[in-house]
Design a protein around this nucleic acid. Structure first.
Length: 255
DNA sequence: ATGGCTATGTAGCATAGA
């Protein structure tokens, strides 16, 4: 079973690339973030024609998440139970007996902003809810744009980023606490190339110079992680014309 | 170097992203 996550930064703009990618990789499930479109404009027919079902939670202009799957998803749920949030950032569903949580964690902007406080509150609520989800689903995967680079090796220039949003100690602590509920960062289960990142700034030829951050992750519960055969970042779509600023991450689970 | 680039909403720029 192959599962993947990709922040597409507008599904409207990136739809041809998503369809291409689905065609060449045929994942069992693909989690998308930053759809930036309302549900009425979700390209269901095009995805169905490509052989994929979709569960989605969209929003005009901002946010929006979806789970695409070859087999229809079951038990679709929206948001974080017990945490009221206008922003469409979480969708969950069962695909082939695995509980998938697709998440778009807030960016946080800067550490002295309201958005940063919202991010930390959001992560606390997310962790509390995931603890309950983990108790209910032994086969649980959390995929998405976490907007946290967990360690200095996930940052192209740790000195330059020190103390900023995405790498600040409080965010990293929140990420560690979340993983500590009983997950593995699937990417770190394996030997990986140095300077592996999933996001690069559009400006200053960030991708060409590999000035990136690893902020998109696939977290696996113990029952899944022991059966994880690989996890890798697919750099190819970042080389496309009009690319998303994020690259997809793919994990293979032998179940 | 507080710039640089992209997408959206909406009509010349503002906001957001990371």
């Amino acid at each position: 079973m192959h599962i993947a996550t990709w922040n597409v930064n507008s599904l409207k703009v990136r739809l041809p690339q998503v369809l291409d990618w689905l065609g060449s990789h045929r994942p069992d499930a693909l989690c998308l973030q930053e759809l930036k479109l309302e549900d009425a404009k979700f390209p269901l027919a095009e995805l169905r024609a490509a052989g994929y079902h979709a569960a989605f939670s969209g929003q005009k202009t901002y946010n929006g998440v979806a789970i695409l799957s070859r087999e229809p998803a079951a038990n679709v749920a929206f948001g974080i139970a017990g945490f009221d949030d206008e922003q469409r950032r979480v969708i969950s569903a069962d695909v082939r007996g695995v509980r998938l949580v697709c998440a778009y964690v807030p960016n946080g902007q800067s550490v002295d902003s309201d958005k940063y406080r919202y991010k930390l509150n959001w992560l606390a609520a997310f962790s509390g809810w995931l603890a309950r989800e983990l108790a209910a689903h032994s086969r649980l995967a959390v995929l998405g744009d976490f907007n946290v680079a967990p360690e200095d090796r996930d940052v192209h220039d740790p000195k330059a980023w020190e103390g900023q949003a995405l790498v600040s100690p409080s965010e990293r602590e929140a990420f560690r606490r979340l993983v500590g509920l009983g997950f593995k960062d699937s990417f770190r289960l394996f030997e990986q190339p140095e300077k592996s990142y999933t996001w690069w700034d559009y400006r200053m030829n960030g991708f060409g110079r590999n000035l990136g951050l690893r902020i998109d992750h696939i977290l696996l519960s113990s029952d899944l992680s022991v059966n994880c055969g690989s996890c890798s970042i697919d750099l190819e779509p970042r080389r496309n014309e009009r690319p998303s600023d994020h690259a997809p991450v793919v994990a293979e689970i032998n179940i």
